[in-house]
Every structure is written in structure tokens, then in C-alpha cells.
């Protein structure tokens, strides 16, 4: 790896991190697991004069569950996939994390890095949208909460300012939910051609009580098709309902011909996966 020159910092507390971010502003960037940032540096697609590695900040690595599931941004993807609390409380998140890349990458990559890098091919942004997650954002002046649906702005662009730190991920929709991450890849790559995150709960009469959906790599950034979620609420899921939901879903997608195939072919596969996925989760519940 032969990146441009950079200065490298490893603060061991949040205050130290805040100071560095205030000092270097746009010239700095946080390095979490590095599995999105390092390839960009390596290929010299980006050049960052000040890199701040936050792996020494212990306060950013935790998993708690009181009223809601709370996860620190530095929890490694592999830990997200295998953590018992997350597995119990949030099947969707554990499932998605287990489908990211390979063990080596999961051992380094972090939940916060995946979310904040906002690469359209990253998996966890769509999962956070489906879970209606909330992000605690901290800087030297304030702490604030940003909803997942307000967080992802565009490819590689989030609601974070240059001095902001993601300090906590809060997931409230855990009781009686079941969810799964449907990830379609090519034969040779672990990146999603596209993926659909679905999180669902049912009323006593077997109608949908709540549903969250997130889409990976079907637009310039992860997308939450709110119209589809609203349409499905209070309905029983069958082929007809699922098919109509898919027609609405397409409105949130921008599918183009690319290296992976024609838009038409991809749409066909996507439809199959979405309808089968909805039905599978509905059956489990």
C-alpha cells in the first residue's frame, strides 16, 4: 500500500478525539476498522493529511440492552454477528453482519465505520434504515440524536459534520420483531449487487403491525422505501400484496445496466428475492 503522506493519531479518549477534529477539521478523517478507508487511500482515490485511528478509545466499544439495544460504533462486525445480546434482540443486524465479506474483514471492520463511510455498497446503512435506528452524534460543543432516515444523504455523504463523532447506535424496535438481510452477490465478490433488509412485527390478527425496509446499492445511497412500509402495514402478506409492494419499491430504486448485468435482469432477480423474503419473514412470525 502506497498512499499519500499522512499524519497518524491514536487518541485514547473522546475528548482527545474532539480536540484533533476541531484542530484539523476537513483535513482529518476518523479511521475505525479501515476496511473502506484504507482501500481508498491505497488506490490514492483519496488523500487525507490527518488520520485519526479511534481503536484505542474503549468508550466506543460496548453492547447494552436496557429499554433499547445500544451499540458502540467500534464494535467489530464479527462481534456484531456473534454477540448474544444482538442475536437475541436483533436478528436482522446479526444476520446482515454475518454476511459482510469474510472473517478477516469482519474481525477488523466496525459497525460505526460501515455506517459512517456510507459507501452505497456497504451493508449496514440499509439495515439501520430498516431498524429505524437512531444515532447519538457528539462533538466538542454538543450531543444530538440523528434518525437513520435523516443520516444518509448521498454516496459517501452523511449528516455528520467534520468535527462530529458517532458515539452510540440505538435500536428500539427489538421486541417481537423478526428480520433478515437478503444479499445478492456475484460469484466472485462479497459486495452486494443489491440487498434488502426487512424487519417486521405482526398484530394478533396476523396483519403487519410494523415493518422496516432498507435497500443496499439500489440507489446512490441506502434507501428507506417509506411508501412500501406504509402500504404493508395492517395487511396480511400474500403474493398479490407482495407483488404490489414490489411495484411501489421500484419507485425508490434507480437500477441501471452495469458490469453485473442489465437493469431488466437485475429487476427480475430483485422481485423474486423481495417477494420471497417478505413471505419468509411473515411465515416465521
Amino acid at each position: 500500500m502506497y498512499p499519500d503522506k499522512f499524519e497518524y493519531f491514536t487518541p485514547d479518549n473522546i475528548e482527545g478525539l474532539e480536540e484533533l477534529l476541531d484542530k484539523y477539521k476537513d483535513d482529518s478523517k476518523i479511521l475505525a476498522g479501515g476496511h473502506s478507508l484504507i482501500p481508498l487511500l491505497k488506490l490514492r482515490l483519496t488523500s487525507i493529511p490527518y488520520i485519526i485511528d479511534i481503536s484505542n478509545i474503549k468508550d466506543l466499544s460496548f453492547v447494552d440492552c436496557n429499554n433499547a439495544l445500544e451499540i458502540g460504533p467500534m464494535v467489530r462486525t464479527g462481534e456484531v454477528a456473534s454477540n448474544k445480546i444482538i442475536g437475541d434482540k436483533c436478528k436482522l443486524l446479526a444476520d446482515a453482519a454475518s454476511k459482510i465479506a469474510d472473517p478477516q474483514v469482519r474481525n477488523m471492520g466496525t459497525v460505526g465505520g460501515d455506517v459512517c463511510e456510507a459507501d452505497p455498497r456497504n451493508d449496514l446503512p440499509a439495515v439501520m434504515l430498516a431498524l429505524n435506528a437512531e444515532f447519538e452524534v457528539t462533538n466538542s460543543k454538543e450531543k444530538r440524536t440523528v434518525k437513520a432516515e435523516d443520516f444518509f444523504k448521498d454516496a459517501y455523504t452523511t449528516a455528520l459534520e467534520s468535527n462530529d463523532i458517532l458515539t452510540r447506535i440505538v435500536i428500539k424496535n427489538t421486541e417481537n420483531y423478526y428480520g433478515k438481510y437478503y444479499k445478492y452477490t456475484t460469484l466472485s465478490s462479497d459486495f452486494a449487487v443489491f440487498a434488502i433488509a426487512i424487519n417486521m412485527s405482526l398484530n394478533n390478527n396476523k396483519t403487519v403491525k410494523d415493518i422496516g425496509i432498507g435497500l443496499t446499492n439500489l440507489n446512490s445511497t441506502a434507501v428507506k422505501p417509506v411508501e412500501v412500509e406504509n402500504y404493508l402495514k395492517n395487511k396480511k402478506i400474500d403474493d398479490k400484496v407482495a407483488g404490489e409492494a414490489f411495484d411501489l419499491l421500484l419507485k425508490s430504486c434507480d437500477i441501471e445496466d452495469d458490469i453485473n448485468g442489465t437493469a431488466k435482469n437485475k429487476e427480475k432477480i430483485l422481485k423474486n428475492i423481495f417477494i420471497n423474503g417478505l413471505k419468509e419473514i411473515y411465515e416465521v412470525l
Binding site: K99, T186, L187, N260, G261, N265
Partner: peptide
Amino acid sequence: IDDLSLFNKCM
């Protein structure tokens, strides 16, 4: 052959 629909690749 490079056909995305071959060999169902839904993980």
C-alpha cells in the same frame, strides 16, 4: 458466461 441469474447467489 457471466449471467447474474445463474447459480442463485442470495446469501
